[in-house]
Design a protein around this nucleic acid. Sequence first.
DNA 1: CTGATGAAAGTTGCATGCCAAAACAATCAA
DNA 2: TTGATTGTTTTGGCATGCAACTTTCATCAG
Lengths: 226, 226
Amino acid sequence: MNNRTPKDGAESGGAVEIAYRHIRSAIVTGELKSGEALQEAKLADQIGVSRTPVREALQRLSNEGLVVLERYRRGQVANFSMSEVAEVFRLRAKLEGHGARRAARRITPSQIDHLEELEREMESIFAKLGWHGHLSQFDHLNNEFHATIASAADSPRLDRILASALELPPSIFNFYREPLEDRTRRTHRQHREIIDALKAGNPDWAEAAMNAHLLSILTDPNPEPE
Amino acid sequence: MNNRTPKDGAESGGAVEIAYRHIRSAIVTGELKSGEALQEAKLADQIGVSRTPVREALQRLSNEGLVVLERYRRGQVANFSMSEVAEVFRLRAKLEGHGARRAARRITPSQIDHLEELEREMESIFAKLGWHGHLSQFDHLNNEFHATIASAADSPRLDRILASALELPPSIFNFYREPLEDRTRRTHRQHREIIDALKAGNPDWAEAAMNAHLLSILTDPNPEPE
DNA sequence: CTGATGAAAGTTGCATGCCAAAACAATCAA
DNA sequence: TTGATTGTTTTGGCATGCAACTTTCATCAG
């Protein structure tokens, strides 16, 4: 079973990267459901690599919180309670708010162009495909939008934390009661406001706008004490 | 070269854990200096495990930011500039401030006892051994002190971020100009104040005290815009 | 039928080997 | 001497095999 691929078309990284993307995407699209068991051998076979890179990929996903690993036990797709989702957005608000504040004073014109371009793309695929069709692409663009701001904050640690510890499968949005189209339109407005604040170089505004954006996700009133 | 150890005395986890602790401790104590190359085979041999668990351990350390990995390149011990250290403490202030705020309403009496016990221990070993002797033990107890508060915040993600993305080798303290004894004494006072705030169940106070504690590390005035 | 028990099957943890890419060294041209 | 070039050595990336452990399932006592 030697499926060595000396040059696999549009391949970017190594086998770990392939496995990582594959599994992550399966989780993100809901193909792998919360709580579902993850068997190294099966995944390896399915992806076309050996167990070693699959193990590394699962390790990474475990760090990111998308997968739960326990010694000698089968991995599982993590499941996210509403309160966990809320907590993630609270933490992201703290960190990305901080990031936006710093970014307001450091962001370059070309980064702002990039943000505007990303936002245009998001709006255009939303207009073309509607919510359900655009979920996966939206996730990607939206992640890059936030990552661009974080990187403008010039804090590699912040980058890493946001990229690795505070990601959620976009499928969680499907649990919300609010019509998804409404939520999406609001998201776009908020993105534009954040861009405005960054363009103006106003740290307070940028932080506040980012906070508003992230905390608006928590529409369901949450009864626990702050 | 089969150094299999069917039951290795007071062993806790697996080979990965052994490798992880070994390498981490070497970095933390300064045995491995910043920028030093990390060769899988050499480490594996030295630790007494194979390369596979060493690779996993390095992966973990890379996620934690203590090690820098790049595909096909030798790993290196990360090096921490003053501005990175400052940024870590700013991020910790945001996150642990949030944690302390939540903890103030949730912490249990037994957790408070635990904090007081930890603080007593820290002060006692400091009194006995002075700064240089107590560095490694202090690091351990101090980490548990902060981890206890974070866990009282009842936010597993926060736990994981603090444990994995915002750790620094305690050796960085040696770069500060301020006499270490002074700094340590202030740390103890601040710890006691944090405990007081938590005991009082006052979220604002707890957050503020935690912020004061973490931001006081940045004694060197930093000229960059916030 | 229910819960305990133990063997068989399945899965993960780790060691090892091979190959490809990087690091290094020697050689040569300018 | 210096910088480029090529050949050699070193080292990391991945596949695979075996051992340790968990899970499953059949069996049996109650």
